[in-house]
């Protein structure tokens, strides 16, 4: 059981670091998906650990939310690309005036 959780943590960390270092918005998005999947793995593992299905159901909900999120996120990326001709997150640095 420990190894599953460990793997989940490693994947989550890799995803997090990916969000920080990658500049392509699509890849950043993929890294977020990776993090979500890592948590799903933890959910499923803990579900087996505790012997009930609530964890699996939580993972299912995460998948649903992730699907919705991907749809919206990708359409945002498309919109940005359409207006700015780039998918680099660093080009959208409008937070600094």
């Amino acid at each position: 059981m420990t190894e599953y959780i460990t793997l989940s943590m490693i994947l989550f960390t890799i995803g997090a670091v990916g969000v920080l270092v990658r500049r392509n918005a699509i890849i950043v998005f993929m890294c977020i998906e990776l993090m979500l999947n890592a948590t799903n793995l933890a959910f499923v593992s803990f579900s087996r650990q505790h012997g009930n299905l609530d964890g699996q159901l939580a993972a299912f909900f995460v998948m649903v939310v992730a699907a919705a999120e991907v749809v919206i996120g990708l359409s945002i990326i498309i919109s940005i690309y359409r207006t700015r001709r780039t998918t680099s997150v660093d080009d959208a640095s409008l937070l600094k005036s």
Partner: peptide, 28 residues
């Protein structure tokens, strides 16, 4: 890990739908 339903959903939703969507946007 005893989650055949999630196995199917993972294949269908993630690998089938979401990944395809990613690739689709990448092509775009």
């Amino acid at each position: 890990q005893g989650a055949p339903f999630l196995f199917a959903v993972q294949i269908i939703v993630y690998t089938g739908a979401i990944m395809m969507l990613f690739l689709f946007v990448l092509m775009l």
